[in-house]
Design a protein around this nucleic acid. Sequence first.
RNA 1: GUGGGUAUAGUUCAGUGGUAGAGUGCCAGGUUGUGGCCCUGGAGGUCGUGGGUUCGAGCCCCACUACUCACCCCA
Length: 425
Amino acid sequence: MQIKVLKGMKDVLPSQSARWRAVEREMRKAALLAGYREIRTPVVEHTELFARSAGESSDVVRKEMYTFLDKGERSISLKPESTAGTVRALLESGLYAQALPLKLYYTNAPHFRYEAPQSGRLREHHQFGMECFGASQPSADAELITLVINLLSSFGLKNLSVRINSIGCPNCRPAYQQHFKEYLNQRKDQLCSTCKERLEVNPMRTLDCKDHNCKEALHDAPVMMDYLCDECKEHFELLKRYLEEIGISYSVDPRIVRGLDYYTKTVFEIITTTPTGELTVCGGGRYDGLVEELGGPAIPAVGFGMGVERVLMLLDALEPDECKLQIEDEVPELFVACLNKALSIHAFSLVKSLRDAGFRADMDHQGRSLKAQFKYADKLGAKYIVIIGDDELAKGVVKLRDMSTKEEQEIPLENAASAMKKIIQ
RNA sequence: GUGGGUAUAGUUCAGUGGUAGAGUGCCAGGUUGUGGCCCUGGAGGUCGUGGGUUCGAGCCCCACUACUCACCCCA
């Protein structure tokens, strides 16, 4: 019985891995330009970390975590998001005591959510994310949004839209929630069953319910935007001004409520349209209370997570000329073919010296006919073939064939690599 | 968790209850020193699994499993 990959998990095969590296390379470059440095946190954490950060009532914690008991009967979970782990590392290392703001990023970090996989939604997916600690000003929020838009645009992606909202802070949110809850209670009968539950646990999540009746019931519901305290209001207004200043277009969507409980003030999503509908590529926001919540000092923070698979999905949908991503060339430059098996020993040592000289070079390992070696080299996409034959060897040369022009020339076997370097470049 | 679709060669997929098929890929030959195109041949199948109906099941029925899409939610 053949063993197959687990549900919701995907192998990245050679045909795709160069794209992964290219995307990752650009992400690192963008992060570095803005002063962010890489952090790598473990894939597993104490379950409690996620319960305390994302919130016991969040869907992620309630039903989507990969949770296990380890051999010491500790409850551990594969990380469903990276902010909690980053904050944990920040506190544990004492990094927060150094110069603030502290800017951190991670890329191609595996994340896990135990749910039904479908298009653009896997159980294991990878995120690029950035977190900025100690920056209370909305310029930090704007910096992140700008960076994401720039990055995605640089790949050639279009149809990106930025949606922002403010969900207030502990000063202004309770009053809003009070009013909102009263509003909901009056319309309790119209709500779907999950929203009835939400009403008790986390009423604000009813705002992004897709159920038709719920939408109807909520269409003139009070929104947080109208209840923001002066500080939150000013913060939000400034964020908009920063975005406008550099020409990032956005829309204010008072219904964005993120799935994680730790957010305060700014929340944002970067959305794109696909043939099947809208797809969230990136989501994030401000979490001014989380560091303190997890036992540290009161340090404001803002960050986002971006789904790498989703970015790649969008890139795959682009026409070849629209995709601006530079993919690393992996095809061999030289394939060393030999006329018969006895000559393989010469091919072997030539390949070695070609590789030492920095060429991507390969040879046959199956004892195949010359013709078969040519076919193989052609399938690999080799740019040149080096032919070693008895006649050539007697003369102390090898033949170099340009696969696209079919031109052949003889190269002295001695110092062949440096001679080829001149010809090929 | 709920609902729909699908399951046949490495892969993409045809297949009307009566001999297991094609495209593509792979290997070889046509060409004893030369790739792409062409021609020929070859290898490759427990027809998802288990039951049932039938003289006979890839096909009909039931169950299960896997995959996939959608809902919910999200990256």
